[in-house]
Write a protein that binds this DNA or RNA. Structure first.
Lengths: 364, 364
DNA sequence: GTGAAAGCGCTAACAC
DNA sequence: GTGTTAGCGCTTTCAC
């Protein structure tokens, strides 16, 4: 044993032995008592460990480990007025592109210790309102949502929420505040130009109906852009068909092309607002013994995995949704760290690109 | 004007005009003041409106609307010790089957006013621990996670969390507590039996390597079941190949089948732990001019959309993941409403079915 | 470097 | 039917 000053006995326990925890979960008070310090010092060890004497810090950390203490964020949020929540509102989670955005966003945010609170609307504006109300009660520090169109109530709530609002996935209109995404309108125009450039003149399109409260406003924007570009180029728009409710899938595509195939003069190219109906179109063609792309050129949007394995593989328009999600995350972190001097809005266009595969050829 | 008793002047304002809200957000106190009642009455209007006099209730509801009051759930949680959170931990969100589970679960829970807190692990057990710690700080009322295997720390945390734990998507082992899913081991056995039943004898399998900390334990279970069934039937297992890290995708399948095709005697059927590598296998066959199913039968798992559009369409094993998610939700609601008499664990097997399509024929 | 007091916004429990 | 009291578990602020 080394000769050493063992120090005097500890005289005062800053956290007196008053109340014992009734529930199983240890509180900061239990840790403080065990370590013989005040609750404040425990709190500091977790937020600014450097400002606590190493010896004290170690003692506290041991107490934390011994008790298996996990701080209660709800209590912390209430006191600090920082919840660490970011609200994310999406049409749904099963669309690969939306879940990829969520993934990218979560990746960036979790490193900064933020939690994503996800609400999904099933393309229903009324449900968006409900989700928003419900999420607002959690006091998110920022709100991220699929852009373009919101109800009056939603817009009002967003404005009065007093937190940054970031719209993703549509840049067609005027953003509420921050935005990162691409222009769905532009997607439509690019698609039309591509087909026209390949020599097609009997060009169709398949998109969702604009009716009722279940709507895909982003898909509608793509249709609008497509139709406008046809018109500007003097190509007739009688083959532009809106059929079925969002989210459009295989069957909608198959059904829609059925209605388009008997037109006269015959259709020779078609754009679908998403790869899913586009693939449905190809399946229907195969069933009818109609050759793609020779008898009908098919183009989609979204670059879903499925388009890589069809026969022929699908020509489509690609957007880097993972990067979009990550970019949204970095913008948020930037905005949130800035001592809320409400700086100029960030508006970022991540762009888009045509992926040429086999389903669009050249007009003979 | 009608002759009516206008009543005496109001004498006491239960919520005295003391402190004004400093921040923009109105609190329950502001509502109480405006409506001339106590905070408790406002609180009651939101939780048990029937126990408040209609006249009072209306006055309060108008005040709520006028102020745009949204109650702070963090504060409510702290006081009531009910957070309304359910934690959900998944390998990732971009796998269609996992996001479908999340969707089904969220559907059921949102009607009961619960919020899902989603953490994803990227198939990394260490990340699962981190997510768990982080989620536990939000005091979820229940924890749902992809089953089978957890670290020692994770198991300890789950046990000491004192909330119901529900494992989903694997029933191979012994559940920690509640579980709803299917047996991945059984999936493997069923797949093997199917291929054997079709007369194949040179049967291969493609699954993830069991190495490192990024692992797909559920996929490994399927492989184990597959291999066991081959052995039990006296079929050699030299074509069972573990290649690549989870999550396996197209390229892993393509690469793996490359290694299997030059074996002697030649392979005539193959099972992949997921439809994604299975489709990769088919693409590679197509590239090499090898006919599916005549020269090689291919079978997958998961019934992803993609398998419906390959040529030939993919024979696979289907699990109703949406139902699984919803079932998980109803079990939770049941367990949570039961005045936590920790009743017998729920263990539900949702079963599985073989979807026979064109990629598996019959041994000539 | 550490502690005491005060309070975040709400609700449980009990009084009236 | 409604109000009062006393916290929930933490952090802010300021004192020492």
């Amino acid at each position: 044993m080394s000769i050493q000053d063992e120090g005097a006995e500890v005289e005062v326990k800053p956290e007196k032995a008053g109340k014992r925890a009734k529930s199983g979960r240890p509180t900061i008070r239990d840790v403080a008592r065990l370590a013989g310090v005040s609750r404040m010092t425990v709190s500091r060890v977790m937020s600014e460990p450097d400002r606590v004497l190493p010896a004290t810090r170690d003692r506290i950390q041991r107490a934390i480990a011994d008790l298996g203490y996990v701080p209660d964020k709800a209590a912390g949020s209430l006191a600090s007025r920082r919840t660490g929540f970011i609200a994310l509102i999406l049409p749904n989670l099963t669309n690969a592109n939306f879940s990829t955005v969520a993934h990218g966003l979560a990746e960036v945010l979790r490193d900064a210790d933020y939690h994503l609170l996800i609400g999904y609307t099933d393309y229903d504006l009324a449900e968006e309102d409900r989700q928003l109300t419900s999420l607002l009660a959690r006091r998110p520090e920022a709100i991220v949502l699929a852009g373009a169109t919101h109800s009056r109530t939603a817009s009002r709530m967003l404005l009065s929420a007093e937190v940054p609002v970031l719209e993703i996935a549509d840049l067609s209109g005027r953003p509420l505040q921050h935005a990162v995404g691409f222009s769905n309108y532009e997607v439509g125009r690019v698609a039309a130009r591509h087909l026209i450039g390949r020599g097609f003149r009997r060009i169709g399109a398949v998109g969702p109906v604009q009716d009722g409260q279940i709507r895909d406003y982003r898909g509608e924007e793509r249709m609008r852009g497509f139709e406008d570009e046809l018109r500007l180029s003097g190509v007739p728009t009688d083959l532009v068909l809106r059929h079925g409710k969002a989210p459009l899938s295989y069957d909608h595509g198959a059904a829609a092309i059925g209605m388009l195939l008997d037109r006269d003069p015959p259709i020779d190219a078609v754009f679908a607002v998403s790869d899913l109906p586009a693939v449905g179109i190809m399946m229907e063609c195969q069933k009818r013994g109609m050759a793609v792309p020779n008898e009908l050129a098919v183009m989609g949007f979204g670059d879903f995995e499925i388009g890589r394995v069809t026969n022929p593989p699908l020509t489509t328009i690609h957007v880097d949704f993972h990067a979009l999600g990550r970019r949204a995350g970095t913008i948020l972190l930037d905005v949130l760290s800035d001592d809320d001097g409400d700086e100029t809005p960030h508006v970022v266009d991540v762009g888009l690109s045509i992926i040429e595969r086999g389903s669009v050829g050249k007009k003979a």
